[in-house]
Amino acid sequence: MNLDTLIFLGLNGLTLAALLFIMASGLTLAFGLMRVVNLAHGAFYLLGGYVGVQVVQETDSLALGIVTGGMVAMAGGVFMERLLLQRVRGLDLSEALLTIAVGMIIADGLLAVYGGSPISLPLPPDLRLPMDLGVMMYPTFRVYIMIAALALGVVFWLVMTRTRIGAAIRAGVDDRETAMSQGINVPLLFAGVFGAASFLAGVAGVIGTSYMSLGQGLDVRVLMLSLVVIIIGGMGSLKGAGVGALITGLVYSFASGYAPQFALFFLFLPMTLILVFRPQGLFGRTT
C-alpha cells in the first residue's frame, strides 16, 4: 500500500461520489418536499443515458447529448409527476408502487427500442487523455465529472440560501402545512424540483456512460446506490447527499481496490450501521 495507490483510490472514490451526488441530490430534495421516494429515478438515468448517447453518436456533440439526455428525462419526470403521481398524492404505498411501475415500463421500453446489448459513450479523444493533477495523471473527463458535481453543489447552495425559490423549498421541507398556509404553492414547487431531479438523473446517465457501460439492469444498481447515499446522509438533506455520496464513493473505491469480492458488503456496511445507530441519517431530522 503506497501513497500513489491511495491517491489513485481516493480520486476514483471522488469520481464515483461526484456521479452519485448528481443522482442523489435531486432525489433527496424531492423526498424532503413531498415524502415521495422516486423509485423510477434509476430508470431516468437509463432513459437519459440511451437518448443522450444516441444524440452524441449522431451529432458528435457531447454537450448536446448531455442536454438532450437531461431534457428527455426531465420530460419523463414532469409527465409522471403531473399526470400520475398527483392522482395518488398522500398514499405512501400507491406512490411507491407507481414509481416502481413507471421505472419498469421505461426500462422495458428502452429494452424494446435499444436492445439488450450494452453500449458505451464515444467521447472526444482529448477528454480520454490523462490530465496532470500534480499528484498523478488522471483521465481528463473524470476530472470534469468531479468539477461538474462541485459546481452543482455550489449552485444548489446558492439557490437554497440566496433565492426566494430556495427559501420556499427550505420552508416546504421543514414544514409543508405551514409553508402552504403562508401562500407557498408547494405542489407546484414540487413539480419543479421533481423535474430538476429527473433532469440531473438524465445528465448523470450520459456522463456516467463515459466510463461505465450502459445496459439493462444498471437502472436498478444506480438507484440502489443513490438510496444508500440518501439513507446515510439523511433523507431530505442536501448536505447529507453530499456527505453520503463521499462516504459511499470512497468506501466503494477502497473496498473494490483491496477486497473486490466483498465490495458490495462494504458498500452496505455504513448504511446498515447508520440505520441501526442513527436511523434518520447523518443530517436528517426525526419527524
Binding site: 495507490t5 476514483n12 472514490g13 466510463y211 457501460s213 473494490s256 481496490g257 473486490p260 465490495a263
Partner: peptide, 17 residues
C-alpha cells in the same frame, strides 16, 4: 485471480491496485 461481483460498473479501483 481477482473476482468481482457480476454487474460491477466501476473498475477504477480494481485497476488502481
Amino acid at each position: 485471480r481477482i473476482w468481482h461481483p457480476l454487474d460491477t460498473a466501476d473498475y477504477s479501483s480494481i485497476l488502481a491496485t
